[in-house]
């Protein structure tokens, strides 16, 4: 499989505070990768680096062979990286349909348009004229994913899709994942629910305090390995 993303030694800062330390990361085309870790481990920060929302000037983030570090967010979006951000971040004064249409502003052609997204999440057609933030949490998450899909991304980033949602709704949303993958879209998902992450992903990374603490093929992982990498148990033993 050809390489989609290759990152070496990525550092990230919020002002003086360093959030990521020498992250090395790889992803292949059409692969699904899960990123897990405790709160504050740097998962969302990492996604913000990939989308250009956090400055990475002078570093190396190779996307399909091109360095996108320091490229402004809107140009990265046009090259095919889309994100459903943490907290969904829907635009309150826009209707469901208008939120979705904004995703199409990126201007990439492909299988996803308004009809296709509404077929994936039928409730969004029914609620199309309602202000997006008046929807239930699960429906809002669907809008956020749909909005990202509307740009026909090569790489879809999903940040904390299940946060604050009932398990049955999480299952509904994840049921859409296979359909998203069939088009050849690679998916990088940040997930608190380790079981879900293991189940849907090809490979996994675990972050701990801004470092990669574990990586590998999801099928080879055990819960023990992950929780060690997650909580840094060996550290506690010291």
């Amino acid at each position: 499989m050809s390489q989609l993303l290759k990152i070496e030694d990525l550092d990230a800062f919020y002002g003086d505070f360093q959030a990521l330390f020498e992250i090395s990361f790889e992803m292949a085309e059409a692969e699904t990768v899960a990123l897990v870790g405790a709160n504050g481990a740097g998962k969302s920060t990492f996604l913000k680096c990939l989308t250009g929302l956090l400055p990475t000037r002078g570093q190396r983030i190779l996307y399909r062979g091109n360095n996108i570090a320091g490229v402004p967010a809107f140009k990265i979006a046009r090259q095919g990286i889309a994100m459903s951000p943490e907290g969904r971040r829907l635009f309150p004064s826009l209707s469901v349909k208008e939120n979705l249409m904004l995703g199409a502003n990126v201007g990439r052609k492909g299988q996803w348009d308004l009809a296709a997204v509404q077929a994936l999440f039928p409730i969004l057609e029914e609620k199309r004229d309602i202000p997006a933030t008046l929807l239930s949490g699960g429906q809002q998450q669907m809008v956020a994913i749909g909005r990202a899909l509307m740009s026909n991304p090569a790489l879809l980033l999903l940040d904390e899709v299940s946060l604050g949602l009932a398990p049955v709704i999480v299952r509904d949303i994840y049921a859409a994942l296979p359909k998203i993958r069939t088009g050849g879209t690679a998916v990088l998902l940040v997930e608190q629910d380790i079981g879900m992450a293991m189940q849907v992903s090809d490979r996994m990374y675990c972050f701990q305090e801004g470092h990669v603490s574990l990586q590998g093929v999801s099928a080879d992982m055990t819960r023990d390995m992950i929780s060690t990498a997650y909580f840094g148990r060996e550290k506690e033993v010291q």
């Binding site: 929302l53 402004p72 809107f74 979006a77 951000p85 502003n105």
Partner: peptide
Amino acid sequence: IIGLMGAD
């Protein structure tokens, strides 16, 4: 996050 919509 307007950049995520491909807009400058």
